[in-house]
Amino acid sequence: MGFKLLSKLLVYLTASIMAIASPLAFSVDSSGEYPTVSEIPVGEVRLYQIADGVWSHIATQSFDGAVYPSNGLIVRDGDELLLIDTAWGAKNTAALLAEIEKQIGLPVTRAVSTHFHDDRVGGVDVLRAAGVATYASPSTRRLAEVEGNEIPTHSLEGLSSSGDAVRFGPVELFYPGAAHSTDNLIVYVPSASVLYGGCAIYELSRTSAGNVADADLAEWPTSIERIQQHYPEAQFVIPGHGLPGGLDLLKHTTNVVKAHTNRSVVE
């Protein structure tokens, strides 16, 4: 069995187990497998329904001669939608809004960016022009300005110390501490036991640490421990890039980060 097929099978099995364990909360999309990078042309966006009122959005972007996937989250909030992270750029984010209108038909009224990198804030200006209120932590807003990236308009308070959590509509926002970046936030959907790890969490097929220019490698494993301790009931975990899975993604990420750190020390 090929690795790609095995990865998709694991996603399907995880979703099936969740649907059985929580039949009222989960209505997993039966329309197909989780979209992969090879299936999404740059400039297009796919939506994948995880649970009743919960979707991931998947886009792709060219970077350094390669094409990478990027995940975000959409959560229903009454007759409105909360968006977590842009679709990595203005063109993708405009396509995301169009796809949401086509498939869901509810307005996106608020959006949260989970850290300051372009795959999370690139497209904020498109959201703002569409009347979406954009939010991020003060740290993310400051770092985005320093980096020359787009800056969300509103500040999220109460997320300055490791372990801080605040309720934001249908989700809980959690600051686990520094990891992929010093400002990275985690998003949890309690009604569906869905954990969105953003770039602080890796997919299972990833074996290298990737972009760690703004990471705190020493603190990252401790931050992941905080996530595990705060959300032990999480059933569906979405990484910032690639295929979702279960809580095993947290341990896998820790292993990859520690291996990278150990290699760096040896070198």
Rank of each mutant, 00 (worst) to 15 (best):
1 M>S: 05
2 G>Y: 15
3 F>G: 11
7 S>P: 10
8 K>M: 14
9 L>C: 15
10 L>G: 14
14 T>V: 08
14 T>F: 08
16 S>M: 05
18 M>T: 12
18 M>F: 15
19 A>C: 14
20 I>R: 07
21 A>R: 15
21 A>I: 14
21 A>H: 14
23 P>Y: 10
25 A>G: 13
26 F>L: 15
26 F>Y: 11
27 S>A: 15
30 S>I: 10
32 G>T: 09
32 G>R: 09
33 E>T: 09
33 E>W: 10
35 P>G: 07
37 V>M: 14
37 V>A: 15
41 P>S: 11
42 V>N: 11
44 E>W: 08
44 E>G: 14
45 V>M: 04
46 R>A: 09
51 A>K: 07
53 G>H: 09
57 H>P: 03
57 H>Q: 05
59 A>L: 04
60 T>L: 09
60 T>C: 05
61 Q>D: 05
61 Q>L: 06
63 F>Y: 11
68 Y>G: 05
71 N>H: 03
72 G>M: 03
73 L>V: 05
73 L>D: 02
74 I>Y: 05
74 I>T: 06
76 R>F: 04
77 D>F: 06
79 D>L: 09
80 E>Q: 11
84 I>G: 00
88 W>E: 00
89 G>H: 00
89 G>M: 00
93 T>I: 03
95 A>K: 11
97 L>C: 00
97 L>Y: 00
98 A>F: 11
99 E>Y: 06
102 K>R: 12
103 Q>T: 13
104 I>W: 00
106 L>M: 14
108 V>D: 01
109 T>Q: 09
109 T>I: 10
110 R>E: 05
110 R>A: 13
113 S>M: 07
121 V>N: 03
126 V>R: 06
135 Y>S: 01
136 A>Y: 01
140 T>P: 02
140 T>I: 04
143 L>T: 03
144 A>D: 04
145 E>W: 12
149 N>S: 11
151 I>V: 14
152 P>T: 02
156 L>Y: 01
158 G>Y: 05
160 S>Y: 10
160 S>E: 14
161 S>R: 14
163 G>C: 01
165 A>S: 14
169 G>A: 05
171 V>Y: 00
174 F>W: 01
177 G>T: 00
179 A>W: 03
180 H>L: 05
182 T>C: 05
184 N>E: 01
184 N>G: 02
185 L>E: 02
188 Y>H: 05
188 Y>T: 01
189 V>K: 00
190 P>W: 07
190 P>E: 12
195 L>V: 05
196 Y>R: 03
202 Y>T: 07
205 S>D: 14
212 V>T: 13
218 A>G: 12
223 S>Q: 02
224 I>C: 03
225 E>N: 08
228 Q>E: 12
239 P>M: 01
240 G>Q: 03
240 G>A: 05
248 D>G: 12
251 K>N: 12
252 H>G: 02
257 V>M: 07
257 V>E: 03
261 T>W: 12
262 N>V: 10
264 S>N: 15
